[in-house]
Amino acid sequence: MRPALHCEWTKLRTVAGPSWLLLATVVLTVVLSAFAATSARYAQAGPGLDLTRLSLTGIYLGQAIVAILGVVSISSEYAFGVISITLAAVPGRWTVLAAKAVVVGGLALAAGTVAVLGSLLAGRLILPGHGFTVAHGYALLSLAHGPTLRAVAGSVLYLGLIALLSLGVATAVRSSAAAIGIVLGLLYLFPIIAAVVPDAHWQRHLQQIAPMTAGLAVQATVNVRNLPISPWGGLGMLAAWAAAAVLVGALLLKLRDV
Protein backbone atom coordinates (compact mmCIF):
# COMPACT_ATOMS: atom_id res chain seq x y z
CA MET A 1 0.00 0.00 0.00
CA ARG A 2 2.79 2.42 0.88
CA PRO A 3 4.50 2.31 -2.53
CA ALA A 4 1.08 2.81 -4.16
CA LEU A 5 0.44 5.82 -1.93
CA HIS A 6 3.84 7.23 -2.74
CA CYS A 7 3.22 6.69 -6.42
CA GLU A 8 -0.16 8.49 -6.33
CA TRP A 9 1.27 11.32 -4.28
CA THR A 10 4.11 11.79 -6.77
CA LYS A 11 1.68 11.81 -9.70
CA LEU A 12 -0.47 14.54 -8.13
CA ARG A 13 2.49 16.51 -6.78
CA THR A 14 4.43 16.74 -10.01
CA VAL A 15 1.78 18.24 -12.29
CA ALA A 16 0.65 21.82 -11.96
CA GLY A 17 -3.10 21.18 -12.16
CA PRO A 18 -3.87 19.85 -8.67
CA SER A 19 -2.03 22.61 -6.85
CA TRP A 20 -3.94 25.22 -8.86
CA LEU A 21 -7.17 23.44 -8.07
CA LEU A 22 -6.38 23.41 -4.37
CA LEU A 23 -5.52 27.09 -4.46
CA ALA A 24 -8.74 27.81 -6.37
CA THR A 25 -10.72 25.85 -3.78
CA VAL A 26 -9.40 28.03 -0.98
CA VAL A 27 -9.69 31.35 -2.84
CA LEU A 28 -13.14 30.81 -4.33
CA THR A 29 -14.57 29.48 -1.07
CA VAL A 30 -13.30 32.43 0.93
CA VAL A 31 -14.31 34.98 -1.74
CA LEU A 32 -17.90 33.72 -2.01
CA SER A 33 -18.19 33.49 1.79
CA ALA A 34 -16.93 37.04 2.17
CA PHE A 35 -19.35 38.18 -0.54
CA ALA A 36 -22.25 36.56 1.30
CA ALA A 37 -21.18 38.15 4.59
CA THR A 38 -20.74 41.54 2.92
CA SER A 39 -24.24 41.51 1.47
CA ALA A 40 -25.98 40.62 4.73
CA ARG A 41 -27.50 43.45 6.74
CA TYR A 42 -29.00 43.23 10.21
CA ALA A 43 -31.69 45.71 9.18
CA GLN A 44 -32.96 43.28 6.54
CA ALA A 45 -32.30 39.98 8.22
CA GLY A 46 -33.48 40.73 11.76
CA PRO A 47 -32.69 38.36 14.60
CA GLY A 48 -32.18 34.63 14.33
CA LEU A 49 -29.95 34.47 11.25
CA ASP A 50 -27.51 31.55 11.16
CA LEU A 51 -24.27 33.50 10.92
CA THR A 52 -22.03 30.43 10.91
CA ARG A 53 -23.89 29.00 7.97
CA LEU A 54 -23.87 32.33 6.19
CA SER A 55 -20.12 32.73 6.56
CA LEU A 56 -19.57 29.22 5.20
CA THR A 57 -21.63 29.88 2.04
CA GLY A 58 -18.49 29.66 -0.10
CA ILE A 59 -18.47 25.90 0.25
CA TYR A 60 -21.23 25.78 -2.36
CA LEU A 61 -18.63 26.95 -4.88
CA GLY A 62 -15.53 25.38 -3.32
CA GLN A 63 -17.04 21.90 -3.58
CA ALA A 64 -17.18 22.22 -7.38
CA ILE A 65 -13.40 22.68 -7.49
CA VAL A 66 -12.86 19.80 -5.08
CA ALA A 67 -15.10 17.72 -7.35
CA ILE A 68 -12.88 18.60 -10.34
CA LEU A 69 -9.87 17.46 -8.34
CA GLY A 70 -11.51 14.17 -7.47
CA VAL A 71 -12.59 13.59 -11.06
CA VAL A 72 -9.35 14.46 -12.86
CA SER A 73 -7.24 12.44 -10.45
CA ILE A 74 -8.47 9.34 -12.25
CA SER A 75 -10.07 10.49 -15.50
CA SER A 76 -6.89 12.18 -16.70
CA GLU A 77 -5.18 8.80 -16.45
CA TYR A 78 -7.85 7.36 -18.72
CA ALA A 79 -7.60 10.33 -21.08
CA PHE A 80 -3.85 9.96 -21.61
CA GLY A 81 -3.62 6.19 -21.26
CA VAL A 82 -1.52 6.39 -18.10
CA ILE A 83 -3.97 4.08 -16.40
CA SER A 84 -2.54 1.02 -18.14
CA ILE A 85 0.95 1.90 -16.90
CA THR A 86 -0.40 2.48 -13.39
CA LEU A 87 -2.16 -0.86 -13.36
CA ALA A 88 0.89 -2.60 -14.78
CA ALA A 89 2.98 -1.14 -11.96
CA VAL A 90 0.42 -1.86 -9.24
CA PRO A 91 -1.72 -4.77 -10.40
CA GLY A 92 -3.94 -4.66 -7.31
CA ARG A 93 -6.64 -2.41 -8.71
CA TRP A 94 -8.33 -1.81 -5.38
CA THR A 95 -4.99 -0.82 -3.95
CA VAL A 96 -4.65 1.83 -6.67
CA LEU A 97 -8.11 3.19 -5.98
CA ALA A 98 -7.58 3.14 -2.20
CA ALA A 99 -4.27 4.99 -2.59
CA LYS A 100 -5.94 7.58 -4.81
CA ALA A 101 -8.77 7.96 -2.30
CA VAL A 102 -6.32 8.56 0.55
CA VAL A 103 -4.25 11.10 -1.38
CA VAL A 104 -7.17 12.99 -2.94
CA GLY A 105 -9.24 12.89 0.23
CA GLY A 106 -6.29 14.10 2.27
CA LEU A 107 -5.61 16.98 -0.09
CA ALA A 108 -9.29 17.97 -0.05
CA LEU A 109 -9.29 17.91 3.75
CA ALA A 110 -6.16 20.07 3.87
CA ALA A 111 -7.47 22.64 1.40
CA GLY A 112 -10.89 22.46 3.05
CA THR A 113 -9.44 23.28 6.46
CA VAL A 114 -7.76 26.41 5.13
CA ALA A 115 -10.84 27.42 3.11
CA VAL A 116 -13.33 26.89 5.93
CA LEU A 117 -11.22 28.62 8.57
CA GLY A 118 -10.58 31.50 6.16
CA SER A 119 -14.30 31.84 5.49
CA LEU A 120 -15.11 31.86 9.18
CA LEU A 121 -12.44 34.47 9.79
CA ALA A 122 -13.87 36.63 7.00
CA GLY A 123 -17.31 36.35 8.57
CA ARG A 124 -15.93 37.18 11.99
CA LEU A 125 -14.27 40.32 10.62
CA ILE A 126 -17.09 41.49 8.34
CA LEU A 127 -20.35 40.65 10.09
CA PRO A 128 -20.10 42.84 13.24
CA GLY A 129 -19.69 45.85 10.94
CA HIS A 130 -23.10 45.11 9.41
CA GLY A 131 -25.08 45.24 12.60
CA PHE A 132 -24.63 41.62 13.71
CA THR A 133 -23.36 42.69 17.11
CA VAL A 134 -23.77 41.46 20.65
CA ALA A 135 -26.23 44.29 21.24
CA HIS A 136 -28.50 42.74 18.59
CA GLY A 137 -28.11 39.28 20.09
CA TYR A 138 -25.38 38.00 17.79
CA ALA A 139 -22.23 36.65 19.40
CA LEU A 140 -18.91 36.95 17.62
CA LEU A 141 -18.22 33.84 15.51
CA SER A 142 -15.85 31.63 17.44
CA LEU A 143 -14.61 28.05 17.37
CA ALA A 144 -15.21 27.88 21.12
CA HIS A 145 -18.95 27.79 20.36
CA GLY A 146 -19.93 24.12 20.13
CA PRO A 147 -22.31 24.22 17.12
CA THR A 148 -19.90 26.48 15.23
CA LEU A 149 -17.07 24.04 15.82
CA ARG A 150 -19.33 21.25 14.58
CA ALA A 151 -20.14 23.30 11.48
CA VAL A 152 -16.48 23.97 10.77
CA ALA A 153 -15.29 20.41 11.32
CA GLY A 154 -18.30 19.08 9.43
CA SER A 155 -17.68 21.39 6.46
CA VAL A 156 -14.08 20.19 6.17
CA LEU A 157 -15.23 16.56 6.28
CA TYR A 158 -17.91 17.46 3.74
CA LEU A 159 -15.25 18.55 1.25
CA GLY A 160 -13.28 15.36 1.84
CA LEU A 161 -16.39 13.28 1.15
CA ILE A 162 -17.12 15.28 -2.02
CA ALA A 163 -13.63 14.39 -3.27
CA LEU A 164 -14.30 10.69 -2.63
CA LEU A 165 -17.72 10.87 -4.28
CA SER A 166 -16.16 12.46 -7.37
CA LEU A 167 -13.37 9.89 -7.45
CA GLY A 168 -15.88 7.07 -7.29
CA VAL A 169 -18.10 8.48 -10.03
CA ALA A 170 -15.12 9.24 -12.28
CA THR A 171 -13.76 5.73 -11.80
CA ALA A 172 -17.11 4.35 -12.86
CA VAL A 173 -17.72 6.52 -15.95
CA ARG A 174 -14.09 7.30 -16.95
CA SER A 175 -14.95 10.39 -19.03
CA SER A 176 -14.12 13.53 -17.10
CA ALA A 177 -16.87 15.70 -18.60
CA ALA A 178 -19.57 13.14 -17.95
CA ALA A 179 -18.25 12.47 -14.44
CA ILE A 180 -18.21 16.10 -13.38
CA GLY A 181 -21.66 16.55 -14.93
CA ILE A 182 -23.00 13.67 -12.86
CA VAL A 183 -21.34 14.81 -9.64
CA LEU A 184 -22.44 18.44 -9.90
CA GLY A 185 -25.87 17.32 -11.08
CA LEU A 186 -26.20 15.17 -7.97
CA LEU A 187 -25.11 18.06 -5.79
CA TYR A 188 -26.90 21.04 -7.32
CA LEU A 189 -30.00 19.63 -8.93
CA PHE A 190 -31.49 17.91 -5.90
CA PRO A 191 -32.14 21.17 -4.02
CA ILE A 192 -33.59 22.78 -7.14
CA ILE A 193 -35.90 19.85 -7.75
CA ALA A 194 -36.85 19.91 -4.07
CA ALA A 195 -37.71 23.60 -4.39
CA VAL A 196 -39.78 22.99 -7.51
CA VAL A 197 -41.76 20.05 -6.15
CA PRO A 198 -44.69 21.66 -4.38
CA ASP A 199 -45.56 18.85 -1.99
CA ALA A 200 -43.99 19.55 1.43
CA HIS A 201 -43.79 15.87 2.34
CA TRP A 202 -41.79 15.01 -0.79
CA GLN A 203 -39.71 18.12 -0.37
CA ARG A 204 -38.59 16.96 3.04
CA HIS A 205 -37.74 13.50 1.76
CA LEU A 206 -35.74 14.93 -1.12
CA GLN A 207 -33.85 17.15 1.30
CA GLN A 208 -33.10 14.16 3.49
CA ILE A 209 -31.51 12.12 0.71
CA ALA A 210 -29.92 14.89 -1.39
CA PRO A 211 -26.15 14.64 -0.90
CA MET A 212 -25.62 18.40 -0.74
CA THR A 213 -28.65 19.47 1.29
CA ALA A 214 -28.24 16.62 3.74
CA GLY A 215 -24.47 16.97 3.94
CA LEU A 216 -24.59 20.70 4.55
CA ALA A 217 -27.07 20.25 7.39
CA VAL A 218 -23.90 19.95 9.44
CA GLN A 219 -23.41 23.70 8.95
CA ALA A 220 -26.59 24.60 10.81
CA THR A 221 -26.20 26.21 14.21
CA VAL A 222 -29.66 27.77 14.56
CA ASN A 223 -32.98 25.94 14.65
CA VAL A 224 -31.23 22.58 14.41
CA ARG A 225 -34.33 20.70 15.58
CA ASN A 226 -36.34 21.78 12.55
CA LEU A 227 -33.85 20.57 9.98
CA PRO A 228 -35.05 17.81 7.67
CA ILE A 229 -32.10 15.72 8.87
CA SER A 230 -29.78 16.01 11.89
CA PRO A 231 -26.34 17.59 11.29
CA TRP A 232 -24.26 14.43 11.71
CA GLY A 233 -26.99 12.28 10.18
CA GLY A 234 -26.84 14.46 7.09
CA LEU A 235 -23.10 14.10 6.82
CA GLY A 236 -23.65 10.36 7.21
CA MET A 237 -26.02 10.48 4.24
CA LEU A 238 -23.31 12.10 2.12
CA ALA A 239 -20.82 9.51 3.38
CA ALA A 240 -23.23 6.80 2.21
CA TRP A 241 -23.39 8.41 -1.25
CA ALA A 242 -19.61 8.64 -1.39
CA ALA A 243 -19.19 5.06 -0.21
CA ALA A 244 -21.67 3.83 -2.81
CA ALA A 245 -19.88 5.74 -5.59
CA VAL A 246 -16.45 4.44 -4.57
CA LEU A 247 -17.82 0.90 -4.27
CA VAL A 248 -19.38 0.99 -7.75
CA GLY A 249 -16.18 2.51 -9.13
CA ALA A 250 -14.06 -0.16 -7.43
CA LEU A 251 -16.23 -2.99 -8.74
CA LEU A 252 -16.17 -1.65 -12.29
CA LEU A 253 -12.43 -1.08 -12.08
CA LYS A 254 -11.97 -4.68 -11.00
CA LEU A 255 -14.34 -6.24 -13.52
CA ARG A 256 -13.61 -4.12 -16.60
CA ASP A 257 -10.72 -4.07 -18.99
CA VAL A 258 -8.83 -0.84 -18.67
Binding site: A36, S39, A64, I65, I68, V72, S176, A177, A179, I192
Partner: peptide, 29 residues
Protein backbone atom coordinates in the same frame (compact mmCIF):
# COMPACT_ATOMS: atom_id res chain seq x y z
CA UNK B 1 -9.64 21.97 -23.64
CA UNK B 2 -10.32 19.90 -20.50
CA UNK B 3 -13.76 18.44 -20.14
CA UNK B 4 -13.91 18.49 -16.35
CA UNK B 5 -13.00 22.15 -15.98
CA UNK B 6 -15.35 23.28 -18.73
CA UNK B 7 -18.36 21.38 -17.47
CA UNK B 8 -17.74 22.50 -13.89
CA UNK B 9 -17.37 26.12 -14.97
CA UNK B 10 -20.52 25.96 -17.10
CA UNK B 11 -22.57 24.38 -14.33
CA UNK B 12 -21.25 26.76 -11.69
CA UNK B 13 -22.04 29.77 -13.86
CA UNK B 14 -25.53 28.66 -14.89
CA UNK B 15 -26.88 26.64 -12.00
CA UNK B 16 -25.07 27.73 -8.85
CA UNK B 17 -26.64 31.23 -8.64
CA UNK B 18 -30.08 29.63 -8.50
CA UNK B 19 -28.96 27.07 -5.93
CA UNK B 20 -27.51 29.82 -3.78
CA UNK B 21 -30.69 31.86 -4.16
CA UNK B 22 -32.66 28.97 -2.71
CA UNK B 23 -30.20 28.63 0.18
CA UNK B 24 -29.17 30.92 2.98
CA UNK B 25 -27.61 33.59 0.81
CA UNK B 26 -29.03 37.04 1.55
CA UNK B 27 -31.43 38.28 -1.12
CA UNK B 28 -29.20 41.18 -2.11
CA UNK B 29 -26.30 38.81 -2.81
Amino acid sequence: RRGAGVVAAGIVLFVLPSVLGASYLPTSA
